[in-house]
């Protein structure tokens, strides 16, 4: 995984769980991002947050149906995007 070429991967994700990105999902995103080497930023409209900042993610106001733009930069950018997509699809294990 590490040592590969630096890639930039961008993907839009639609929030599916009922309560959106509140504290628990934000903590899950941070936990997931921290397992990879790539840097992740997540944005919605003009708001932007680091994938490793719980407080930042909360300010995105990611309600159910909101579209987030996730950008990963690093050697395992594809993997981290896939892992985050899984997390969003599984509704953060909530609903």
């Amino acid at each position: 995984m590490t040592g590969g070429e630096i890639k930039t991967v961008e993907q839009e994700m639609t929030i599916k769980n009922r309560f959106g990105i509140h504290a628990r999902p934000a903590a899950l995103i941070v936990k997931t991002v921290s397992q990879f080497a790539s840097d992740v930023t997540i944005s919605r409209e003009e708001m932007i947050a680091s994938g490793k900042s719980i407080m930042g993610l909360l300010t995105l106001e990611g309600y159910q149906g909101a579209v987030l733009k996730v950008t990963a930069v690093g050697p395992d950018a594809d993997e981290v995007i896939a892992a985050l997509q899984d997390l969003v699809e599984s509704k953060f294990f909530e609903d």
């Binding site: 959106g20 509140h22 504290a23 106001e61 159910q64």
Partner: peptide
């Protein structure tokens, strides 16, 4: 308490 506040806000937006 912060989480409750967030959930209320996110639900309203939805």
């Amino acid at each position: 308490e912060l989480d409750e506040k967030l959930i209320a806000m996110l639900t309203r937006k939805r």
